[in-house]
């Protein structure tokens, strides 16, 4: 098995762990962290294809990963601020109980 296939298997399994976590847990913070895991899996794919691709000198994969990390950081900040806002309104962060648009 080539190293590229191992990298792709790693990123696929990490994506699925994040997917199961995001679907199965009802805690909002853990769902957000599951989504972050899926983003990280996508970054691993970019790096793997940059490393074993035909033209690694271009560096496109590295630059894309840098931008993706920046966007993921912004997403985490806004998501956790939303978690705090929801907690202030209803005093818990279970997703099933966050079903009102106006608190």
């Amino acid at each position: 098995m080539s190293p590229l296939q191992l990298c792709l298997l790693l990123s696929s399994l990490l994506f699925c762990v994040g997917l199961v976590g995001a679907l199965a847990r009802s805690n909002t913070i853990l769902v957000l962290l599951g989504v972050e895991l899926m983003l990280n899996a996508a970054n691993i794919n970019f790096i793997a294809f940059w490393r074993y691709g035909p033209n690694p000198a271009a560096g496109t994969g590295v630059l894309f990963v840098l931008f993706a990390i920046a966007v993921a950081a912004a997403e985490a900040a806004v998501g956790l601020a939303l978690v705090i806002a929801v907690y202030r309104h209803q005093k818990n962060i279970r997703l099933q109980e966050a079903n009102r648009l106006k608190g």
Binding site: I29, L33, E36, N40, N43, I47, W50, R51, V62, V65, L66, I69, A70, A72, A73, A76, A77, L80, V83, I84, Y87, N92, I93
Partner: peptide
């Protein structure tokens, strides 16, 4: 072999995002 991305990951995720997550956990 992507050292710059590795250090960016350490700075942003291990350093910053984990702190934000811990703050959110403690505040809620």
């Amino acid at each position: 072999g992507a050292e710059f991305v590795a250090f960016a990951q350490v700075l942003i995720y291990v350093g910053a995002v984990s702190m934000v997550v811990l703050f959110a956990v403690l505040l809620t």
